[in-house]
Amino acid sequence: MSQWQILGRWLAAPPADWRDRLVARLGSRPRRLGPWCELGLFGALECLADAGETRLPEAALVSVASLHGPDRALRDALAQLREDGLPLPLGFLQSQPNQLLAHFCAATGWQGDARTLGTRAPLDALRIATQGAADELLLGWVDEDGKHGHVACSRWLRLRRQPADASAAPPCPGAPDLPAWLGLDAFRL
């Protein structure tokens, strides 16, 4: 079990102007990002800003969890496939969740360990990430809003492993949602 300091967080629902805020953070309108990727990048950059960072340490791990992934991009690309057998190259790329990782790297000038993970238990992504050797983590839970009742989320935590002699923190809350994590500075997992 380790103890983790929360350096930054973005846990709120995306505000109505989240795309404008993303443009402001990037300095220009992003290109080639599908909607899921844009939403994820928005939350990741807000979280980094909350931690007072523009770039992750070299040895950090980025882990993004999602239940639906880039669902809209996949559906659009499949519609193109059914139309004439030809998905647009960017449409095909945007249907892959790992594009968020590459765009995050490009946007922040960072290069390092990053992955996307699907799991029905949201905290499994956190648990798996903390089992590795990385002492610096950026974790995201990203899902688009959809016609099937799921609402948009782009929740992110920037974590740092604390030394073994750090004063005892409370155990990890049960889910990456707002009430449990607000006001929390560190947790054990």
């Binding site: 992934g69 892959q96 996307t116 993970l117 699907g118 799991t119 029905r120 238990a121 499994d124």
Partner: peptide
């Protein structure tokens, strides 16, 4: 969703442990 195949694999193998999908 992205876990339909993972859920199916769990049933096909009668898997009792957690099943995660890694996608990169």
């Amino acid at each position: 969703d992205c876990l339909v195949l993972a859920d199916a694999v769990r049933a096909w193998l009668d898997w009792q442990g957690p099943v995660h999908w890694v996608s990169t």
